[in-house]
Amino acid sequence: MQIRDYILRRLIVLPFLIVGVSIIVFGLTRIGGSPVAIYLSHEMSSEEVAEIEARFHLDEPVPVQYAYWARGVFQGDLGWSGVAAAPVTAVFPNKLAATMELAVASAVVAVSLGIGLGTYAGARRNKLPDHITRIISISGAAMPLFWFAIVMLIVFWVYLGWFPIGRSTPEVFASISHPTGLYTVDALLAGNFKAFRDAIWHLVLPAITLGYGATAIIARMMRSSLVEELQEEYVDAARAKGLAERLVLRRHARRNALMPTVTVIGLSFGFLLQGTIVAEIIFRWPGLGRWMADSVLRGDRATIMAYVLFTSVLFLVVNLVVDVVYAYLDRRVVLGS
């Protein structure tokens, strides 16, 4: 199947999957009691409560509530976030930008470091670099993120003071406009180096912390698949042609070793996104994850649903990208079969 046809076919399935996921989550948000609580205060009379219930259709049966919610989504209305005290759609883009900036930075760290370390170790099997990489990987996969993040925070912010927390320095933030909400991009657009450095400076600690676990997983996968590929006969055949070892490693062995690694990279993106919740809380990063955590604790259904909608789309797209990259790397793969 052509790659384009495959992508189209997968995109057609996408809405059905999203409807399925949203129904399940909508049901689950009812378990913690009525979502009306988020809109109430102690001083309200029972008439006022009933009025609010009616306004948000909370007096109707759950399937009808879902229908109202779905109609809202189609009209571009994701509901009212009690936590943010604003419409979800008004707050979402900024929070999303913050989370994406962090997630992409961590992904860049994880993919480049993971592939680099894995290749370095795999090509030097059972030598010192390999052992060091193994220690890095095992610790990365074994440490709980919340614990590691707190340690990083204490060491680099509290004691050494090398890195700040939060997302930007207020004066610097105020000095430029933010059309995209991605502070690094905004700084570049404004041509403001100071703002760019500030944005990067704030990113480093949370991005490395969040990316470490994924780095470990990717490096381990890369190492083991490279070791396996290096035993294949085509590697010796490439050497027999007179190729430099660098080419044997990069063009021949590493390319094939990347195939299983790409799958792991796709999976670890999910892992990263999950990690943003913890990382954003600990590093005071004003993103979706922190908003989501508050919303879950306070039963803010509109926000939870928006988050779920977003993550399902993201996951499906990432999976699709992984499939396509995989098919590109391994020509034997027939997409869709």
């Binding site: 006969e233 010796d236 055949a237 027999a240 007179g242 021949h252 390319r255 391994d330 020509r331 034997r332």
Partner: peptide
Amino acid sequence: RSIRGNRIAMIFQDPGKALNPA
């Protein structure tokens, strides 16, 4: 390296394994 593939070449038993699938 300047001899491999140039002055001395090698053919392997299983061409399916000696060619890079990618």
